[in-house]
Design a protein around this nucleic acid. Sequence first.
DNA 1: ACCTGAACACCGTTCAAGT
DNA 2: ACCTGAACACCGTTCAAGT
Lengths: 240, 240
Amino acid sequence: MTASAAPEPPWRSNAEGTRRTPLSREAIVDAAFRILDREGLDALSMRRLAQQLGTGAASLYWHVRNKDELIDLMLERAMGEVPLPGSSDPERWQEQVKDFARASRRVFATHRDLARASLGRVPFGPNLVEIVERSLAILKAGGVPDHIAAYAGDLLALYVAAVSYEDDVAGDGFGGDWAATVEGYLASLPPDRFPLIHALRSELVSGDSESRFELGLDVIVAGLAAFAARRSQDRSSAGA
Amino acid sequence: MTASAAPEPPWRSNAEGTRRTPLSREAIVDAAFRILDREGLDALSMRRLAQQLGTGAASLYWHVRNKDELIDLMLERAMGEVPLPGSSDPERWQEQVKDFARASRRVFATHRDLARASLGRVPFGPNLVEIVERSLAILKAGGVPDHIAAYAGDLLALYVAAVSYEDDVAGDGFGGDWAATVEGYLASLPPDRFPLIHALRSELVSGDSESRFELGLDVIVAGLAAFAARRSQDRSSAGA
DNA sequence: ACCTGAACACCGTTCAAGT
DNA sequence: ACCTGAACACCGTTCAAGT
């Protein structure tokens, strides 16, 4: 049952403290993801990463300018994991936008804390550029005006990253009892001063992150659709 | 012209290294904001903060559980700086929602890096609760259905914080040349493979953060309005 | 009750030196 | 060209001891 003759799988090639592969950007990013995915962003230090690769931290700096650049590299690689949406279909553009946002969220979900690392960065590189091109095609096919379409990608990326961030953090601290704790606090407020909070108390806190994510997606896409509709109205009234 | 007889303004009462005030949560949060506003989140360490207050880091831990709680306290105080919207006016609800988002963004702008510190936290406390109650009133007056209204606050808060985060980061690194650098990269892409990026190249990058913020606000509020319209349609067709 | 110094177990990055 | 050990200047938090 042992397979001592078979080669080690590549993702195990850098067992703690034993380095077989020579250092390279690729190998460093590989190892960084192994730490990130399993232990989260706080565990990802240059020293810990070096240890994982069987070296000292200083060695990493030959291949990578600093930790900031390392995270940019990780982000660029993760962008490559987002499946590109198929060819754009004007009839289904809203669903295509949503599917794409869902796929992005899935990538964030598989790399713990990646969303936190991504916020405030715009990792414009080969992979992101591909994504942007396809997204613009979908939005234009849907009739979203240019200046809105150009910003819609930012808006959706912001939304997906922020929600994913919250998902990561929710997993960390308070278990599932956080919602109950907050709802308890809301329930304790004087109903005469906070009537709406009281009435909507459970809706304010309830719902898995999945359905809350979908709600926001609904709102954003409805907003984009409103602009698309306005444009097509302008068109028909202008006769062009 | 000197005013040596006048008392020191409270915000200067803790000059570096000289402590007049006894330690307290309030004084600690005061000092923390002085560091944050001037030097940003990376400069805000427990040791640096203690030094600002003329003590050692260990002393802070009598008043504050840890750095995490300190940031929660800072956030709660900042929420108190957001001016509450006036009484809700059904005719102007969309503008009221936007004004409120703008006011929140202004608070983030005055406290450097506060947005970064806020992400992933829901600082439910006395000040936030006040804000939530008023926001719900505006949204309900506008006819936004309950389950959407309950999530809309989250969505808007997420958006404002994420944009403010980007504003903070943009101020840090690359000056104003970042947009030009990215646009140059986009321009260098093969036009046949990336026709839309080429066509929208300048729109993708251009615009001050102000007008980009307004665009996203337009989209989100239009989305909320779409749900409000749907509900009023349901109403009139149901005759209730 | 409140504050302190010293210690523990970490960080990112640099730099002279090695091969 | 690539890697290394040691050092610099930091972190958050704890803990026994002081007043």
